[in-house]
Every structure is written in structure tokens, then in C-alpha cells.
């Protein structure tokens, strides 16, 4: 470098004066090379790039040797510059390696961050899927329950219809403002002026009881007579007959508190009391199924 020449010039003057190379003042370039080599030795270059530090050392030794042997040789300055540049190169290489390591660390950090983020997202997704799965299962169960409920309703309707059909075969069934009315002729149930049930009547009442059990509705059993005989007798007979039917139904499984009995005597006739047929129609027991409370 430019500084070198005056230094060498000065060195030459010193040499001329002293005449001994060992005591000559080294050129500035050599001083610089020594300092930069020491710097490279002390810094990260020695850890990260020892090979280039070693090359700098070899170059510096060579410059020192030539300086010792022939201090006036212009190559001393050249060799010192070469040694200095090699020391600087070792430092630059080490810095490059360090920067590359930092880049790799940053890339690894970014990768780790992304992996963590991805895992978090996957975790959320799996949670969402679980919730979705649970909801779908609930939905299916609800659908199943609704279907079962519908089937139950249909079954109940079928049973009610069956019950009605059964009753219709053995008694006349009609609807009035009280509810469903099952009307049985007294001749079917009782002997004249008696209130204990005929054996044949029981079979009919069994079917009716079976049908009514499904309904779980309040029931009133009314007894009716024609107008033959005294009213007191007819009232009493109709009450006893209604009671007999009521007790029989309770015996067959209709809840006790759901069934009442009432004698109406000759009241509320459904036909005339003049003709034989009319009177026969008036003598009856009506089982009235009231609407469910």
C-alpha cells in the first residue's frame, strides 16, 4: 500500500545506518499484517475457519523471513500485504460461516413456528370434528327417538281402533256430547229384574274391559230401564245393574278411580216405551268413555 514505500524507505535508511537486518524497523505493512493476524487468532476465525488462519500464519512467517534475510527486498511489503489479506480473509470467512449459521437457525425457528402453528390448527380441527361427530350422533339419536315416538303413536292409534272395532262387534257404539258411548241391551247382560251378570255377558264385558284398559280414560257406567214398574224400583235396579257392570270392569283391570256407576231408571229413553221393541231398546247399559282429562 502507499504507506509501505516511505516505511521501506525509512527502513532502508535505518539499515544503511545500522547495517543489521535484525534491528531494522519493520515496514508498516508488516506491522499491520501482524496485528490483523493476532486479531484473527483471537476472534471467531480461529474457531470457525482455522485453516485460513493457518494460511495467514504461513504467509506472515514467510514475510517475516524475507524481512529478516533481505530487509531491502521490495517483496517484503508484497508478502506482508499478502499475509495481511489472508488474515482479513480468514475473518471474513468466519463471519460468513457465522451469518450462514444464523440464517439456518432463523430458518429452523421459522420451521418450528410453522410446525407448532400447524399442530395447533390440527388440534383445533380435530376438536371441531369431535364436536361435529358428537352433534351428529345426538341428531341421529333424536331422529331415532322421534321415529320410535311416531311408531308408538301409530301403535296406540291402531290399538284404539282395534278396541273400537272389537267393541262394535258386540255392542252398538256411537259418539255423543259426553264421549264414546257403548250401549249394551240389558237382555244380554241380566235376567229380568235381576242385576247379577249372566255368564254369557261376562265374555262380552271381558272384551270391552280389555279394549278400554288401553285408553286410560274416565268411564261412567249408566243403567237404564223402560217405564214398566215403579220408578223407585227402576231407579234402584238400574243403579244396581250399572254397579254390577262397573265392579266387573274394575275386576278386569280398569282402574277403580276411573270408573263410576249411575242408575238413570227410565230417564233419557232412546226409543218409545209403547212397543215391545222400543221398550227393549230403552232397557240398556251404557258405558260412556269420557275424554281424557
Amino acid at each position: 500500500m502507499k504507506l509501505t514505500n516511505p516505511t521501506i524507505l525509512a527502513g532502508s535508511l535505518v539499515l544503511a545506518a545500522v547495517g543489521c537486518a535484525g534491528q531494522r524497523t519493520p515496514p508498516q505493512s508488516l506491522v499491520d499484517a501482524r496485528a490483523d493476524y493476532v486479531h484473527a487468532m483471537d476472534g471467531i476465525a480461529m474457531q470457525l475457519d482455522p485453516t485460513d488462519v493457518h494460511e495467514a500464519k504461513v504467509a506472515l512467517d514467510r514475510a517475516e523471513q524475507v524481512f529478516q534475510d533481505t530487509p531491502d527486498d521490495p517483496r517484503v511489503g508484497d508478502l506482508a500485504i499478502v499475509a495481511d489479506r489472508k488474515a482479513l480473509l480468514a475473518q471474513a470467512q468466519a463471519s460468513t460461516i457465522k451469518a450462514q449459521q444464523e440464517t439456518q437457525q432463523a430458518a429452523a425457528q421459522i420451521e418450528a413456528n410453522r410446525t407448532a402453528q400447524l399442530q395447533a390448527t390440527r388440534g383445533q380441527l380435530s376438536q371441531t370434528r369431535q364436536v361435529l361427530g358428537a352433534t351428529q350422533m345426538q341428531l341421529q339419536e333424536q331422529e331415532k327417538a322421534a321415529t320410535a315416538q311416531q311408531e308408538k303413536m301409530r301403535d296406540l292409534e291402531t290399538r284404539l281402533k282395534d278396541a273400537r272395532d272389537t267393541i262394535a262387534k258386540i255392542a252398538s257404539v256411537r259418539e255423543d256430547d259426553r264421549g264414546m258411548v257403548i250401549s249394551l241391551p240389558s237382555e244380554v247382560l241380566f235376567k229380568t229384574a235381576k242385576y247379577d251378570l249372566k255368564p254369557g255377558a261376562m265374555a262380552k264385558l271381558d272384551q270391552i274391559a280389555e279394549a278400554l284398559k288401553a285408553k286410560e280414560q274416565p268411564i261412567v257406567v249408566y243403567g237404564y230401564t223402560d217405564t214398566v214398574g215403579t220408578r223407585e224400583f227402576n231407579m234402584m235396579l238400574s243403579q244396581q245393574r250399572a254397579q254390577s257392570v262397573r265392579d266387573y270392569l274394575v275386576g278386569k283391570g280398569i282402574p277403580n278411580d276411573l270408573v263410576n256407576a249411575q242408575g238413570k231408571g227410565p230417564d233419557d229413553p232412546v226409543s218409545d216405551n209403547v212397543s215391545v221393541e222400543g221398550r227393549a231398546q230403552n232397557r240398556r247399559v251404557e258405558i260412556v268413555v269420557l275424554p281424557k282429562k
Binding site: 500485504i81 489479506r85 480473509l89 463471519s95 460468513t96 451469518a99 450462514q100 444464523e102 432463523a106
Partner: peptide, 21 residues
Amino acid sequence: ASSEAQLAFALAREAQAENMA
């Protein structure tokens, strides 16, 4: 000349590596 050129190359690489880091 070689050692100067090699240093120049190394310095350029160093600057690029530091930029990337």
C-alpha cells in the same frame, strides 16, 4: 493481486451472508 482479489470475493460473500441472516 490474488490475495486482494480473494479477500474482495470473501468480503462480498460475507456481506451477502449477513444480509440473508
